[in-house]
Design a protein around this nucleic acid. Structure first.
Length: 827
DNA sequence: CGGGACAACTTTTTT
DNA sequence: AGTTGTCCCG
């Protein structure tokens, strides 16, 4: 959506001409487009026209320099970004774009890996598991090893394994590095088995896709050489978010031609939790001598005020490349900072403002608006007000479509049908719907399989021959027969993909089970049926958009790429045996049958998130995390729940590095806004099941006052709450009246900031004091839950916080105002 | 073996 | 608060 706006502003370029590619570009942008050969680092600040530069550069390479699109590799982080880039390049150079490799690290590397089954040791149709399945597998292994899940959280173990992989550390290396550390030794054990299980199952997780690619390149020079030769120009977007494996793979690929162009912004590095290493971009110049560095600092997106605020916040970070965004746009409006009484008031306020923005101004639409927040869990509290007012909205992220249970069940069936060796999928569905095959039996099947070196499906088939399985033999054989039947149907290729998915839903009994759900689950089952229907039509859409791209060359070989409109999907049928690596790179026999379609469909289901599949043109307000908003822009942005502990997240406040990353996140958030930005907070919020007092985020304090206009009065505790006197209650549908309206676009009436009528009762929570230096005076009296009543001896403001020296009846304590649970006592 | 009641934990962010 | 996992009983 970000770039749509640019296009709508009429910047889509006129038809091909070399010079046309430079029109409307500023000098730095031109320089980047025209850069010839050799390493290029583009430091692209937020809203500096980055995508435009990349697309024009690629178009320039193709049209002016005559580079074959086939020799260009462009890597992005999300499928959506890839689709966007592809379509914009297509606008510039036409359909030849389709033979260009544009995609995410994961999808491009899968494509490569599938072509080298011999070298990787995986088959060409290895399965890919998502995060959920990874966790499930880790949990299972931990149970096998009798590791207490209370001592070792599954998430933490999984995280440690994932990070080890991203550091390119093998299980053995991890173990030897663990030394005598019990915890790490245990993790090493899980890691080892985890990897074995994946291998045995011909399955990769997200991390393996990257790691195995590096291993393929490093272990097979001839393979690497072939790909190096092919990709004369490599372009990596969001380079600041690459991790070690991605870094290595890219640099290996680029080593021959050294035409590597990386684009990024160290201030927007927000993925260190998944191994991204900001040093990759900071040290690019070091890695490549004679790197051409171009800084894009002119911002075309936001008002001067918004930019100034963003610059001020990010300036608090230490390690960064100095840059300063500027704009020729006017100052624009002040940023509105809102201190609402509680999350209800907050969401109502947001809803009212959105309502006014759209309904009172012709030409504004819902889709101009985004509400951003730190964590997905907050989306629900924000939805409230929007729903109340009937504002159309959509929550992005969160539970992805493909993560829904019923969807995963169907996909597991499809995976198992496609690959009978997929024990993980088998385990998921063997008793779904209920077939009276319990955990004991399942476990027996699994261990027999391991002992005999058979797939679990094979064990089921042969159940009658295993005395241990006698009791359930019939059921197991029945299940095997079902799968085998479906496999034959797949091989017969007599269905369309859509029909086949329906067929599986029917024969597996999944649909029946849901339809027969008990009365009380009625609503739920309607939802689930709808989801399944959606999956079926998704399959239909997938095959409809599936087109054969590229022309067969003389001599029989041809690359078959199934390009799906917008995004890109790869279902590639390989020649039976490619003789040489180079041949595997270049030659692919075109065979499109049902199995191939299914393979592509399944891969997309894992590699594509819900966001990639949503319709950009729908007219609704967008609710999403800041992470999800990266790369997007909106005329009107609400940054919600900007409270200490939420944003910055409490977990991030322990180290300087993670706090800096949070600040970069704040920077990303602020710079999404084009014309108007609201920062909203609630004084109290329900978190972890408790009503908590919420201090204002430190990031708000880092924005110079002159850019802010505050609604909601000073923080609670300093005086009587400014709002909340008039008993407005829940006043749902009241339209924002004229009061308080300023010309243009004013502040909404106070009523939306009121605490809901009856919310007050209940015991008064001790006030966790915000960073409000003025509230503390020497001699002032406070109460502390442990130390009791005390007197302030000294006050020292420091870095947005306040250090207090307190005298509790003779005992002197030094406390941080933001940390200590102090209540100010009046007089 | 399946279902229901109860307990515990959650909170970073995603390919 | 809400969900997810565990335990116990039929």
């Amino acid at each position: 959506m970000n770039e749509n706006y640019e296009q709508e502003r009429g910047e889509r370029l006129p038809p091909p001409s070399a010079t046309g590619l430079l029109e409307g570009l500023n000098p730095e942008q031109r320089e980047a487009v025209l850069h010839d050969e050799g390493p290029l680092l583009i430091l692209a600040g937020a809203g500096s026209g980055k995508t435009r530069v990349i697309t024009h550069r690629i178009a320039y390479l193709i049209r002016v320099r005559g580079v074959s699109p086939w020799a260009i590799l462009a890597i992005t982080f999300t499928n959506k970004a890839a689709a966007e880039m592809k379509s914009r390049i297509a606008d510039l150079v036409g359909p030849v774009t389709q033979s260009m490799w544009i995609g995410t690290f994961h999808s491009m590397f899968v494509r490569i890996l599938r072509r080298h089954p011999v070298e990787t040791g995986y088959s060409k149709s290895f399965a890919i598991i998502d995060t959920d399945d990874q966790r499930a597998l880790v949990r299972e292994i931990m149970r096998d090893l009798n590791i207490d899940e209370k001592l070792f959280a599954v998430n933490a173990v999984h995280g440690a394994i994932s990070r080890a992989k991203n550091r390119m550390q093998s299980p053995a290396a991890y173990r030897s590095q663990a030394g005598s550390d019990f915890r790490r030794r245990q993790i090493a054990e899980v890691y080892l088995r985890y990897q074995e299980r994946l291998r045995a199952n011909d399955t990769m997780d997200f991390d393996d896709i990257l790691v195995e690619t590096v291993r393929l390149f490093e272990g097979h020079p001839e393979v690497l050489a072939a790909w190096q030769a092919r990709f004369r120009y490599i372009l990596v977007d969001e380079y600041q978010d690459t991790n070690l494996a991605q870094y290595r793979a890219v640099n290996l690929l680029a080593a021959l031609h050294r035409n590597i162009c990386v684009v990024g912004d160290d201030d927007q590095s927000i993925y260190s939790f998944r191994g991204a290493d900001i040093r990759n971009i900071l040290e690019f110049e070091h890695d490549y001598r004679q790197t051409k560095v171009i800084k894009l600092e002119r911002n075309y997106r936001s008002t001067g005020t918004i930019l100034a605020a963003a610059n001020a916040v990010i300036a608090h970070n230490g390690s960064r490349k100095e840059k300063n965004l500027w704009t020729e746009a006017g100052e624009g409006e002040q940023i509105t900072f809102v201190r609402a009484a509680d999350h209800f008031a907050e969401t109502r306020f947001i809803a009212a403002e959105i309502d006014r923005y759209v309904r009172d101004h012709a030409g504004n639409s819902w889709r101009d608006v985004a509400v951003l927040y730190r964590v997905n869990a907050l989306s629900r509290s924000i939805e409230l007000g929007l729903r109340e007012r009937g504002i159309p909205y959509r929550v992005y992220g969160g539970l992805r479509f493909y993560d829904r249970r019923e969807i995963k069940d169907v996909l597991a069936y499809l995976r198992l049908i496609q690959n009978p060796g997929d024990d993980l999928s088998l385990a998921r569905v063997i008793n779904v719907p209920k077939r009276q095959i319990g955990l004991v039996t399942q476990e027996a099947v699994r261990s027999l399989g391991q002992r005999e070196g058979l797939t679990m499906l094979e064990v089921c088939r042969q159940a009658a021959y295993f005395p241990e399985l006698r009791r359930s033999a019939g059921k197991l054989a029945g299940f095997a027969a079902l799968i085998d039947r479906l496999r034959l149907d797949l091989a017969a290729s007599s269905h369309t993909l859509l029909e086949f998915v329906e067929h599986v839903l029917d024969k597996s009994g999944l649909m029946d089970e849901i339809l027969n759900a008990k009365e009380k689950n009625r609503e739920d089952s309607i939802d689930r049926v709808q989801n399944l229907r959606e999956l079926v039509s998704d399959a239909g859409e997938f095959e409809d958009n599936f087109t054969l791209v590229g022309e067969p060359e003389e001599g029989a070989t041809l690359e078959v790429v199934m390009a799906e409109d917008g995004g890109e999907t790869l279902a590639i049928r390989l020649p039976e045996a490619a003789e040489t690596a180079a041949e595997a790179v270049d030659t692919v026999a075109p065979v499109i049958d049902l199995a191939t379609l299914l393979e592509g469909f399944l891969e997309r289901a894992t590699l594509y998130s819900a966001q990639d599949l949503t319709d950009e043109n729908d007219d609704h307000v967008r609710l999403m995390t800041i992470h999800a908003a990266k790369g997007l822009e909106f005329p009107l942005v609400f940054l919600a729940c900007v409270e200490e502990g939420v944003f910055p997240a409490r977990q991030s406040m322990t180290s300087a590095e993670s706090l800096e990353e949070e600040r970069r996140l704040a920077y990303v958030a602020i710079t999404r806004a084009m014309q108007r930005l609201y920062i909203t907070t609630a004084r109290t919020r329900m978190l972890y099941g408790y009503q908590q007092e919420q201090p204002v985020s430190m990031f708000v304090d880092e924005i110079p006052k002159e850019y802010l206009r505050e609604i909601g009065g000073p923080a609670a505790g300093v005086g009587p709450a400014v709002f909340g006197a008039a008993g407005a209650g829940a006043a749902p549908r009241r339209r924002t009246g004229g009061e308080g309206r300023t010309p243009g676009f004013g502040v909404s009436p106070v009523s939306f900031l009121e605490r809901r009528g009856a919310a007050a009762p209940g015991r008064a929570t001790p006030v966790r004091r915000a960073v409000e230096p003025d509230a503390y005076r020497v001699g002032g009296r406070v109460s502390h839950p442990i130390f009791g009543r005390g007197v302030i001896v000294s006050v020292e403001a420091l870095a947005g916080d306040v250090i207090l020296e307190l005298d509790f009846g003779g005992r002197t304590k030094t406390l941080l105002a933001s940390q200590a649970n102090l209540t100010l006592l009046g007089n």
